[in-house]
Amino acid sequence: MNNKFLGTGVALVTPFKTDLSIDHDALTKIVNFNIENGTDYLVICGTTGESVTLTKQEKQDVIATISQANNGRVPMVLGIGGNNTATVIEEIKTTDLSNMDAILSVGPYYSKPTQEGLYQHFKAISEACPVDVILYNVPGRTSKNMEPETTIRLANDFNNIVGVKEAGNNVAQYLQLLKDKPEDFLVISGDDDLALGVVLAGGAGVISVIGQAFPKDFSNMIRLGLQGKAKEAYSIHFKLMDIIGYIFEENNPAGIKAVFEALGLCQDSVRLPLVPASQQLKSKIKGFVNDFK
């Protein structure tokens, strides 16, 4: 099994200053905060990183800052996906992936391909990609679910498709994947609220949003889950349950950025069409952060 992606990966935010330029100092701080507190790997330029609002140059700058701060300490995964297969392949071919351990590629959004279309899309990506590929199924955002049969077919047919970040918020679908997957294929939770249950059922871990704000507790919870220590792990899950709900109440990543603002790690600025968390939500988040022990 590919141990690089066992445990807790975090979908890093892209911190912005008030003028909405990238705050590279805050990004460095967040990377160090995570690595020093037990995060196992970093996911760069995913949806939580507001990658769709970053220019090509900004993406390169974000990758450079994170790579420098990480300095080879933990594996790195780069988000490269979209609904134009040819464009995704072009991005793979023109991006320096030499220090990336994998790409995370989201299912095509908006266009709603059939299961065969999804298979052919990821087949083309696999064949073009020089590093490992982690599939990303998030039907709530793409409006099309990748059925377990399609994921398993891809897992069996392509050696460099090593795992799936499954974020359908569907327990039955997780269990189907865990039952049918090849032995060394990783089922990674993309749902913070379900992550522990998935790990206890045989999942490889999580790519988390909240984990980057509470890396010590969250990565410890997943570690205990991987060891089958359900009772100890659930005691941490219950401590974090409310904040997991809060950060997804309005939009992601406005929620997690409000947590970071409360922690003093970055501002809560987001780029349109997203807007910062409401005052009401921010006060709930601040209260949680202040009381968290």
Rank of each mutant, 00 (worst) to 15 (best):
V13L: 13
K286P: 03
I247L: 15
T87E: 14
G72R: 09
L274S: 12
K239E: 14
F260S: 03
S219Q: 09
V209E: 15
K144L: 06
E232S: 04
V131H: 01
P276L: 04
N3K: 15
A124N: 14
M241D: 08
V10D: 04
I92W: 13
I89S: 10
H24L: 15
N290F: 00
T55H: 06
I63W: 06
D157I: 07
Y136K: 00
A26N: 15
A11H: 02
V138S: 07
I152P: 00
E249V: 04
H237M: 02
M146L: 09
K286V: 07
L281G: 00
Q60K: 07
D193I: 06
M241W: 04
G225W: 04
D132Y: 00
P182F: 10
G9L: 10
K93R: 15
V10W: 11
S105K: 06
N156E: 12
I152L: 10
L154A: 06
I210F: 06
L281D: 01
K257P: 02
G82I: 09
S111G: 02
P108Y: 09
H121S: 12
V62Q: 07
S126W: 07
E116Y: 03
D242A: 10
M76Y: 05
G255T: 00
L6V: 11
N220F: 01
V77W: 03
F238H: 11
A230V: 01
K257T: 05
K179M: 08
G205F: 15
I207N: 15
T39C: 06
S21F: 12
K239A: 07
G38Y: 08
S219L: 05
S126H: 03
G46Q: 06
T55I: 03
D40S: 12
A201Q: 09
D217V: 06
V43E: 14
P108E: 01
K181G: 09
V162P: 00
T8F: 05
T39V: 15
G202Q: 14
Q120H: 08
K29C: 14
I134S: 10
I285A: 00
Q120A: 07
N160K: 08
V52N: 07
E90G: 08
D19M: 08
L118Y: 13
E36A: 14
V171W: 11
L118C: 11
D25A: 15
E249W: 08
G211R: 12
T18I: 10
T48E: 06
T85G: 09
N84D: 10
R141S: 12
F218V: 03
S111N: 12
L281M: 02
N169P: 00
V77L: 06
A204V: 01
M241I: 03
A201I: 10
I35E: 12
T53I: 01
E166I: 03
K257S: 02
G49W: 05
A230I: 00
P75E: 13
R141H: 07
N32L: 09
L265C: 10
K293F: 02
I89K: 14
S283F: 04
N137P: 10
V171I: 06
E183R: 14
K123W: 02
V77H: 04
T65S: 14
T142K: 04
I210E: 01
L265M: 14
G245K: 15
S283G: 02
A233F: 02
K165D: 01
D23R: 11
G46N: 07
T150I: 03
Y246A: 00
G117T: 08
L27V: 10
N34I: 11
Y109A: 09
